[in-house]
């Protein structure tokens, strides 16, 4: 199912604007974000918490709570069709079927009063024509696939009876049971123990190779990005600040924010060296100043940075884009 017309990306997000109307004021959680995902690509979305990466993912699957949230503009083209202009019942046929999602908190993301097996068959009931027996068998097959021993027993258990890692495996089984074209993983390992994190990432990678689904991996953990994705998008305060090939980003980061992020990763074998951190904190998204959102924390900030919001420009190759005043006049 992964083949699309040559050249056209599988998912193309153009100028997406998702705003929240809160009582304190307007929050531009996602402001003019554009990117695309082609089939079997693994795309990483990085940024600090509150930078709009999860909201971007929620916008794609129509999960923004309305009100206070609203998608104010842009297009989300899936196989050339704008999801924002699609009827909701048709959109629901895409969610869970062609595009599915794994959430951050496996503790709360599963329904506590339903057997996990039923939570998986629910997806199949919605999107396939299988009868109830086949659905159950398929669910068990899927549970086995994500590496759970005793799948029959597990299918009949409730979320509270499973460990965090097991629950996340169930979430993955649920997301992949319909062979989606795109899997969105929203911080899938943040809530887990470090050892489990590696297992879950390995599982996502393996499943990706097997189904050749495209994956959008959302995380604040650069280590995860480095070993998992092909392409990286760095977000800051609702905007894309840099995007490019994973190697390029890690070897030649251009944006001061990306540079700061990379410097704050501890490196094995360099003991005694003080870890650098980015000074200051993320600006309040309400009443953002006119200039570059990062200017107040940027070591290279010039006067121009406080007045003029920078454009996203290409540097070096056509794959590498940066939003910074330093790279154009």
């Amino acid at each position: 199912m992964a083949d699309t017309a040559a050249g056209a990306p599988l998912l193309d997000v153009r100028g997406l604007k998702t705003y929240f109307h809160t009582e304190e004021g307007l929050v531009r959680a996602v402001d003019d974000v554009s990117f695309s995902v082609s089939s079997s690509e693994v795309l990483g979305l990085v940024g600090e918490s509150g930078c709009g990466k999860s909201v971007t993912a929620f916008s794609i699957l129509d999960l923004i709570p309305v009100p206070p949230g609203r998608i104010e503009g842009g297009e989300i083209l899936f196989r050339g069709k704008d999801l924002l202009k699609t009827e909701s019942h048709e959109r629901r046929r895409i969610s869970g079927n062609h595009i599915s999602m794994i959430f951050q908190e496996p503790m709360t993301a599963l329904n506590p009063v339903m057997m996990v097996g039923s939570q998986i068959t629910e997806v199949l009931k919605l999107h396939t024509l299988l009868d109830s027996h086949d659905r159950w068998e398929k669910a068990i097959e899927m549970i086995a696939k994500v590496g759970i021993s005793e799948p029959r027993k597990t299918a009949k258990s409730y979320p509270h009876e499973l460990s965090g890692g097991m629950r996340q495996r169930i979430m993955i089984a649920m997301a992949l049971v319909c062979d989606p074209d795109i899997l969105i993983a929203d911080e899938p390992t943040t809530a887990l123990d470090v050892t489990i994190q590696a297992q879950i990432l390995e599982l996502i990678k393996a499943m990706q190779r097997e189904t050749s689904a495209a994956v959008i991996l959302i995380t604040h953990d650069l280590a995860v990005i480095a070993e998992t994705v092909n392409r990286v998008i760095v977000m800051y305060a609702g905007k894309i600040v840099e995007s490019g090939d994973v190697k390029t980003i890690f070897t030649e980061p251009k944006h001061p924010y990306t540079q700061g992020l990379l410097k704050s990763i501890p490196v094995l074998g360099e003991p005694g060296k003080l870890l650098e951190s980015i000074k200051g904190r993320v600006p309040n998204l309400i009443d953002l100043p006119p200039g570059c959102h990062f200017a107040n924390r940027c070591p290279f900030a010039r006067e121009r940075c406080f007045e003029e919001h920078p454009r996203l420009v290409e540097v070096d190759s056509d794959e590498h884009e940066v939003r910074c005043n330093l790279y154009y006049d």
Binding site: E24, G25, G280, P283, N284, D287, L288, P289, A295, N296
Partner: peptide, 8 residues
């Protein structure tokens, strides 16, 4: 910080 120029 710049964002606090206008008192919120």
């Amino acid at each position: 910080t710049v964002s606090e120029k206008k008192p919120n």
